[in-house]
C-alpha cells in the first residue's frame, strides 16, 4: 500500500500546479475547488426572479443568471462538474447566511446599497426596480399619502420595510406596518384583507399578481419611493470570486443573452399560472445591458 501516499502526493502536486492564480487569492473559489461543491442562496417566492414552481424546483430570471455564474466558476476552476446545493433564504436572514458561510452566492431580489455594503459584497447589477404599492383596484388607494392610518404590509428585512418605517417616523403617517416572513406571506396578508396595500419592488409586485387567484383584481400604484439596483450577494473581501461573477453577468448582458432571458421571464407566460408580466425593458435596464456595472443607487 505504499503506492497510495505516492499517488496522493502526486495528486496534490498536480492540483497545485493546475490551480489558476486567482483561486489562490479567493477563499470562496478555493472552497469550491476543494469540496467540489457550491451552495446557491435562492428565494422561495421572489417571482419572477427566484422562486419555486409547483414541483418545488427553483426557477426565475435571477436563478438563470446564477446558473450562468456557476458555469463560469466551473470553467475558471477547470472542474468537470460542480455539485450545486440549493439553500432557500428569506429577506431577513439572507445577509447573515452569506456572512456566516452557509451560502456562497445569493441571487434573488437583493438591493445593492451602501448600508449593506458594510456587511457583504455585491456583484454587477442585474436588475433595476422602483419601490411601489400593490392594492386592490376597488380600494381607492392611489399613492403613499392615502396610506395614513391604515394597515400596510411589507416583507421583513427588505429596503421597503425600512422606507415605510422611516416614512412613519418622518411624516407621522401612523401606518400600522405588518412585516411578513416572505413575499408570499405578504401577499397573503393583502389578499385576506389584513392590509390595504403591499409595498415592495415593482417587479416583485407584478410577479405576485401573476400568482394571484384573480389577477385582474390587483394593480400596482404609487410614485416610486426609491430606485434600487439588484445584485448577487457575495462575502466581503473576496475579489477573486467577485471578478468571476461580475464577468459572467457582464458577458450575459453585453452578448444579448440577458435580453433573451429577460424576454422569457418578463414578456412571456411564466409559471405557476402561465401569466405574462408584460414588463417591457426600462431605460435603466437597457443602459445597464450596454454598460454593465456594480453601482448602488444609494
Amino acid at each position: 500500500m505504499k503506492l497510495l501516499p505516492a499517488v496522493l502526493t502526486a495528486a496534490v502536486a498536480a492540483a497545485f500546479l493546475t490551480t489558476p492564480a486567482v483561486a489562490q487569492e479567493s477563499a470562496t473559489l478555493k472552497k469550491i475547488k476543494d469540496t467540489g461543491s457550491i451552495t446557491l442562496g435562492h428565494r422561495e417566492s421572489s417571482i419572477p426572479f427566484s422562486y419555486y414552481d409547483d414541483k418545488q424546483q427553483v426557477i426565475g430570471y435571477a436563478y438563470e443568471l446564477q446558473r450562468k455564474i456557476v458555469d463560469a466558476v466551473k470553467a475558471e476552476l477547470k472542474l468537470d462538474k460542480v455539485d450545486v446545493k440549493l439553500m432557500p433564504v428569506t429577506s431577513a436572514n439572507r445577509i447573515t447566511l452569506v456572512q456566516n458561510g452557509t451560502v456562497d452566492i445569493e441571487c434573488g431580489s437583493t438591493t445593492n446599497n451602501t448600508e449593506r455594503q458594510k456587511q457583504v459584497a455585491f456583484s454587477n447589477t442585474f436588475f433595476v426596480i422602483g419601490t411601489k404599492l400593490m392594492v386592490k383596484k376597488t380600494s381607492g388607494i392611489k399613492d403613499f399619502p392615502d396610506l395614513a392610518g391604515k394597515n400596510v404590509v411589507t416583507t421583513a428585512g427588505t429596503t421597503s420595510e425600512r422606507l415605510l418605517r422611516r416614512m412613519n417616523e418622518e411624516k407621522q403617517m401612523k401606518m400600522n406596518i405588518i412585516s411578513a416572513k416572505d413575499h408570499g406571506e405578504s401577499f397573503l396578508t393583502l389578499e385576506t384583507g389584513r392590509a390595504v396595500a403591499f409595498m415592495m419592488d415593482d417587479a416583485l409586485l407584478y410577479g405576485e399578481i401573476a400568482k394571484a387567484k384573480r389577477p385582474a383584481d390587483w394593480e400596482v400604484v404609487g410614485t416610486a419611493q426609491s430606485k434600487e439596483a439588484y445584485g448577487c450577494m457575495l462575502r466581503k473581501d473576496d475579489a477573486g470570486f467577485k471578478k468571476v461573477v461580475d464577468a459572467a453577468i457582464a458577458q450575459a448582458q453585453t452578448s444579448g443573452e440577458a435580453d433573451k432571458i429577460y424576454a422569457k421571464w418578463f414578456m412571456n407566460p411564466i409559471p405557476p399560472k402561465g401569466l405574462n408580466l408584460n414588463m417591457p425593458m426600462s431605460d435603466e435596464m437597457k443602459e445597464l445591458h450596454k454598460a454593465p456595472n456594480d453601482r448602488a443607487y444609494e
Partner: peptide, 22 residues
C-alpha cells in the same frame, strides 16, 4: 414570532437583520 408579534425572539431576529451584530 411566527405570526409577526414583536415579542423577544422576533426582536432578536430583527436586531440581527438591522444591526448585523448577531
Amino acid at each position: 414570532t411566527t405570526i409577526g408579534l414583536i415579542e423577544l425572539s422576533r426582536q432578536a431576529q430583527q436586531l440581527v437583520d438591522y444591526t448585523a451584530q448577531p
